[in-house]
Amino acid sequence: MSLLEIRDLHASVNGNEILKGITLTVNAGEVHSLMGPNGSGKSTLAQVLARRETYEVTSGEVIFNGKDLLEMKPEEAASEGLFMAFQYPIEVPGISNPYFLRAALNAQRKYRGEDPLDAMEFLPLLKEKMKLLEMDERFQSRSVNEGFSGGEKKRNEIVQMAILEPKLAILDETDSGLDIDALKIVSRGVNAMRSADRAMILVTHYQRLLDYIVPDFVHVLAGGRIVKSGGPELAHELEREGYGWIEPALAGAR
């Protein structure tokens, strides 16, 4: 059984249809990259999967880990093992990073019927993951993302992912706003998480990220549909030729 099965998914926001029939299968152990021009629906798909209520699913179905994902609340999807790294991570003043993360982890553990971790068990884990992402220890005492640079916020997302150990990680433009050094650090963090029982979806506009995190499959989204799928070579093709060829392909699809 596949980990994620998306069948003919349509979704709208404020009455505008953005996803116009997405069909995609992701198996455990696979890394998929979703590429496409701005406005193609990449981020919308990520948000729908993370169960953001702003988006209304009008038809289609999504089976995650054998369950109906579209019936889940965001916290249920998270506890079932779905994680989305935000394109624009939210600043939450007044809530410290470790407090938030431990509360989140324990909420998920409770959902799965596991015992909570106390601070003494949790802090070494956090320390280890922060080291992996080369984050300064002073981030431990700060509020969630508050006063972080763009790159620090993105790294913090990967720290969260590393702690929560999801079955499926969706990285929504995690590469945007990163300089090359930060990109390498983030990629190393993500690659360390690749395993046979975990899948990833990398949402990105550029091929650059895929030099560091090599996907198994690349899909091109345009106008709310997947217009082309292939192996990692497709990303290089896009890099060479841009998205210009998509318009005629779209016209053909209509």
């Binding site: 993370a50 169960r51 953001r52 209520e53 609340k73 965001p74 916290e75 999807a77 998270a78 506890s79 994680f83 989305m84 935000f86 991570p89 939210i90 939450v92 003043p93 007044g94 809530i95 938030f100 993360l101 509360a103 989140a104 982890l105 909420a107 998920q108 959902y111 509020s143 969260q160 929560l164």
Partner: peptide, 20 residues
């Protein structure tokens, strides 16, 4: 949404934001 997407239920997420 950010807090809920990490696994906190709505009531706990709300309470956490109020406490902050």
């Amino acid at each position: 949404f950010y807090l809920r997407s990490r696994g906190l239920d709505e009531a706990s997420a709300r309470q956490m934001l109020l406490l902050a």
